[in-house]
């Protein structure tokens, strides 16, 4: 299914508003004092969960595009990725401001001593260059291949994000396990496809028309007598 530019623009606007919904929900809840007895915990948990949701969503784009053949899906990924960064940034700011209230000493201790914070912070830091290069200019400047290599950092970022969640829960890891399964599945799918391509390549599917010329020197074993 291919779609017109107008349709794509409409989809983008809808997606943009959809991605803002969780934040609007939190904002409304804060305004109405409806975030429960521990609103800071609610805010931080929701921002974290939506960062993960959006990271998983970006990882879904390529498999969905491949399976459906809808190339335009790829053109939504930048927005989803930038929203993932946006929620990660809010999650980080929420930690610094609401949770720790700029207690830099405690924050530094947390980052270095608490593995779940270390790994969450690492995921956030890794997201920064990706967000910074999410534009046409950066792609041109870096070159497509290098840009793509850089943006594959989203794989470890997603893994770090899930570990961050897993390590912070007290006992019940059912929900983090669901995210782990989703990420493993989406990354596994890529590994599988890559392996298939490699095999097909070996089998000669992508082989060039002309076989490479063997240029070996023939070393005479027996000297010819004239």
């Amino acid at each position: 299914m291919s779609i017109s530019n107008g349709q794509l623009a409409a989809i983008k606007v809808a997606l943009f508003l959809l991605c803002l919904l969780p934040l609007a929900w939190l904002g409304w809840g804060a305004w109405q004092d409806a975030l429960g007895p521990n609103p800071i915990e609610t805010i931080q948990r929701d921002l974290g969960i939506w960062t993960l949701n959006l990271l998983v969503a970006t990882l879904c784009v390529t498999p969905l595009r491949r399976m459906s053949g809808w190339a335009w899906l790829g053109r939504l990924r930048r927005m989803i990725g930038l929203f993932a960064f946006f929620y990660a940034l809010l999650h980080f700011l929420g930690y610094v401001w609401l949770d720790q209230f700029f207690d830099w000493n405690a924050i530094a201790k947390d980052i270095f001593k608490r593995p779940f914070i270390t790994v969450g912070f690492a995921a956030f830091v890794l997201l920064i260059p990706l967000a910074a290069t999410s534009n046409r200019f950066a792609i041109k400047r870096l070159g497509g291949r290098r840009w793509q290599t850089l943006h594959r950092a989203v794989y470890p970022i997603a893994i770090f994000g899930v570990i961050h969640y897993w390590w912070l829960v007290k006992r019940d890891v059912a929900t983090p396990a669901l995210y782990a399964l989703a990420v493993l599945f989406l990354l596994g799918l890529r590994a599988l496809w890559r392996e298939q391509e490699r095999r097909e390549q070996l089998a000669g599917k992508y082989a060039p028309q002309q076989p490479p010329r063997l240029r070996s020197r023939i070393i005479p074993i027996v000297s010819r007598r004239d």
Binding site: P37, N38, I40, E41, L98, F101, A106, K109, D110, R114, P115, F116, W167, L168
Partner: peptide, 14 residues
């Protein structure tokens, strides 16, 4: 996994 130095009293910001 986390610090016990501080606590959030329900209903308080700091």
């Amino acid at each position: 996994r986390w610090s016990q130095a501080k606590e959030r009293r329900i209903g308080e910001f700091f």
